[in-house]
Nucleic acid binder design. Structure first.
Length: 789
DNA sequence: CAGTGAGCGAGCTTCCGCTTGACTT
């Protein structure tokens, strides 16, 4: 039995550290937090200075039991959780649970898992910093209060059936998306004309090559564009001046969680959760350093490894050692940047994770490479007939530097055009140019683009909202709650004018372009917009973009011992709770009602509003004599934008398509989307079939297909005991009555060969195991009285 | 699984941050 027990958060780290420390230490993992606030009464005693009640959640009991056992048989316990607020709190909870004295228990920290860092840490233990622990408790308690007081307000005031939620992070994330949408709705594009001209000149090899030059700024309308072109008719064009300037580009810092998510989204099209799942795999297999980090720092050992890889792959002239600093003030830097653990390996076998690994490898290596050196050439071109001039720019790469390994992508910028800076032929002052043609092209300003998952993470990080471990879960929460949706938007055609000057004549042509097409963007739903509006009206402090940053300052003061945590919470709670009470008492139920006009058939009013089951349109008012008619909005429609004709269209369902096998086929939209009903059975229409226009001959194959899979589902039916063996999406399983039972892993191959006796055996075992936890929610853990066992 | 849409009220939901598997029909 080892003398010392050292506890870290991650099991993968535990393994590595155990190897480094040798036989004196047994290293165990606590898998993150081991206690949390009880859920009853928020786990907070509001009458007594917000005293928290912590419990060990059921899923953590096993870990805690194991740690207690090992701690008992060790001489000394060392706490080596991450060096940040949360890590300090985890160590304190460990003390509480394992019965350690926080005043003497050894607490060590390291920012990197390298031999020198760990050995150094073990030589310099400290004790727990209770100020830091209290800062974490304040953070935790404030989040619980905000979440558990705001959410019930929504349950009361939104009149929705589903379980709504609000919180310091998620509600602001939704607000960002809602406000971006409003900006886009309010945006009206302004058009202007940009002049461009093409010339040719001889290159070094005496061949004629074409190049482009840009006109002077933007011209407001077709008239002024036409005037400018007219003024150039018959002109001569001469190079007035050529300026050559060197320019440099520097590589980006190595990856943090947020920048990895952004680049994987831009370059590989991954969702943030996919990126994190793959990164976790790479981390667990020892390929990369820890993937939830806000630090851009690289360890000494890593720098050496990277330097060697640069010399080997590119040559010593490409090496330039750099240290990056975090721009983000809220960063807690408990870990290193995300980097490969072995730079000699530029790629890996595993096809799932290879692309992400290569991205990390390239970004890491580029971060320690030299600047790219460019030469920017600007030529001013005089027009003989006017005082205006044109400008041609070109860029030549003198030394590739880091660009040889990696180039960071950028999000689409608003309104900016891509600049086509290519090569220019050699030009000299006084040189006259051969004119080809000149155009004035109509261009429109563009609204800010909608957020992608990754650009939303970037924005949240800038605002200091959320942490590396929560970006992906937050993005999925706001989608799961139905506040926002990720989807594509088709573009629309738009006309634009081009004025062309060629061979002394000006012509105007009209051209078409597709604009506004978006892929995989975040759109707010009606629910998201209504909830955001409601929360902003009644809880503007918490919804403020600067709220988190402000309270973070206070948490820092608690950590520095300048503030007392429960006083800080008290100052926040008093006015906050007052608004909660006020809102519960006075605020109207949110219906988001918008009237669309009258139904031409009946003359009754048509309104769009939020119903118990989502956005809908309604014809007529409820009264004694009559029930109004209702219809659900399509997922792409919105209460705020739907028109009367669109609303009336929705009342065309249910549609009877006629007979198939002498039974009626009826189309409607239900809880799970559009479906066809035939002979008392339901058939989902799927995404490709439009319920408003689909014809009978498209539905019949669907019915046949579904029947077939239904028949294939059954593997075996026993005549006694109501037992069946069925095929499900997770493999074969046994069904008895309404309950399902998993097959043991070694039996899934030979499911068809199972006998009745074997099935009964599996069922008995299945009944004995707890199973079906979700259906029967566990009893709340009993709060333990002091003195009782 | 494929209704519904008013309001009442039982009994439920809900937060953010740390960590990974076990499990799903």
């Amino acid at each position: 039995m080892a003398k010392n027990l050292l506890i870290v958060e991650s099991p993968a780290k535990a393994k590595t550290i155990e190897k480094i420390l040798g036989s004196d230490f047994q290293v165990k993992s606590c898998f993150g937090h081991i206690r949390d606030l009880e859920k009853d009464d928020m786990g907070i005693d509001l009458q007594h200075e917000f005293r928290p009640t912590y419990i060990v959640p059921e899923e953590k009991e096993k870990v805690v039991r194991e740690l207690k056992k090992v701690a008992k048989s060790s001489d000394e316990v060392w706490l080596a959780t991450d060096e940040d607020r949360e890590g300090e709190a985890i160590s304190w909870h460990l003390c509480e649970v394992l019965g350690l004295d926080p005043g003497v228990t050894k607490r060590i920290v390291f920012h990197e898992i390298t031999r020198p860092a760990i050995q150094q840490a073990v030589k310099n233990p400290r004790i727990l910093d209770m100020n830091l622990v209290n800062a974490q408790q304040a953070r935790r308690i404030l989040d619980r209060i905000v979440g558990f007081e705001l959410s019930p307000v929504l349950w009361r005031k939104m009149g929705m059936k589903n379980s709504l939620s609000a919180g310091r992070v998620q509600s602001v994330a939704v607000r960002l998306i809602v406000e971006r949408e409003r900006e886009i709705q309010a945006f009206s594009p302004q058009s202007s004309f940009r002049v461009g001209a093409s010339f040719s000149a001889k290159d070094a090899g005496d061949r004629w090559v074409s190049f482009r030059a840009e006109g002077p700024g933007r011209l407001p309308d077709p008239e002024s564009a036409g005037k400018f072109l007219e003024s150039c008719i018959g002109a001569e064009y001469t190079v007035r001046e050529v300026q050559v300037k060197p320019a440099r580009k520097s590589p980006a810092a190595p990856f943090t969680t947020s920048t990895l998510q952004q680049e994987a989204s831009r370059k590989l099209g991954y969702s943030v959760s996919r990126t994190m799942v793959l990164a976790q795999k790479l981390y667990e297999s020892g390929r990369i350093s820890y993937m939830r980090t806000d630090s851009v720092n690289l360890s000494e050992t890593a720098l050496e490894d990277i330097g060697q890889a640069i010399r080997g792959n590119f040559g010593p002239e490409y090496l330039e050692s750099r240290t990056f600093r975090n721009r983000n003030e809220s960063a807690q830097e408990a870990h290193e940047a995300i980097r490969p653990t072995n730079m000699a390996q530029s790629t890996i076998e595993d096809s799932d994770t290879r692309r992400l690994y290569e991205l990390i490898w390239k970004r890491t290596i580029a971060s320690q490479m030299s600047d790219a050196e460019l030469e920017k050439t600007t030529a001013r071109i005089a027009i003989s007939t006017t005082r205006e001039e044109l400008t041609a720019t070109g860029e030549v790469m003198k030394f590739e530097g880091f660009l040889k390994a990696y180039r960071e992508d950028r999000d689409e910028e608003d309104g900016s055009e891509e600049n086509p800076e290519g090569l220019l032929p050699p030009l000299a002052a006084g040189q006259s140019l051969r004119f080809e043609e000149m155009q004035a092209t109509e261009r429109f300003t563009r609204p800010a683009p909608r957020y992608t998952e990754a650009s939303l993470v970037k924005k949240l990080e800038e605002l200091g909202i959320g942490r590396p471990s929560t970006y992906a879960p937050t993005i999925s929460t706001i989608q799961k709650r139905g506040y926002v949706e990720k989807r594509d938007k088709e573009g629309v055609q738009r006309q634009f004018q081009v004025l062309l000057l060629r061979e002394g004549k000006i012509t105007t042509v009209s051209q078409q372009e597709i604009t506004g097409a978006e892929k995989s963007k975040m759109f707010p739903t009606d629910l998201g917009m209504l909830v955001t509006g409601f929360l902003k009206t009644h809880f503007n402090r918490v919804m403020d973009y600067g709220f988190t940053a402000k309270i973070e300052e206070e948490f820092d003061e608690i950590a520095n011992g300048k503030k007392v945590w429960n006083e800080m919470i008290g100052t926040f709670y008093q006015p906050f709770h007052e608004s909660v009470e006020n809102t519960l008492e006075h605020a109207e139920r949110v219906r988001g009602e918008r009237s669309l006009g009258d139904d031409p058939a009946t003359g009754k009013p048509v309104v769009a509003r939020m119903g118990r089951y989502g956005p809908m349109v309604q014809i007529g008012q409820a009264s004694q004599e009559e029930k109004p008619r209702f219809a659900k909005l399509k997922s792409t429609q919105s209460i705020e934008t739907i028109t009367l004709p669109e609303a009336l269209e929705l009342f065309r369902l249910p549609r009877n398509l006629g007979l198939f096998e002498e039974k009626e086929v009826v189309i409607n939209i239900g809880r799970f989307g559009p479906y066809a009903q035939h002979d008392k059975k339901f058939y989902s229409l799927g995404k490709d079939l439009d319920p408003y226009s689909v014809a009978l001959d498209r539905v019949i194959p669907l019915i046949r297909e579904k029947r077939e899979t239904r028949d294939n589902k059954t593997i075996k039916v026993f005549s006694t005991g109501n037992i069946q063996i069925l095929r499900g999406p997770y493999g074969p399983y046994i069904k008895q009555g309404t309950r399902n039972y998993r097959l043991p892993k070694d039996k899934t191959e030979s499911a068809a060969a199972l006998t009745l006796e074997e099935c009964k055996e599996i069922i008995e075992k299945g009944k004995a195991s707890p199973g079906k936890r979700k259906r029967f929610p566990r009893k709340k853990p009993q709060a333990r009285e002091p003195g009782s066992k």
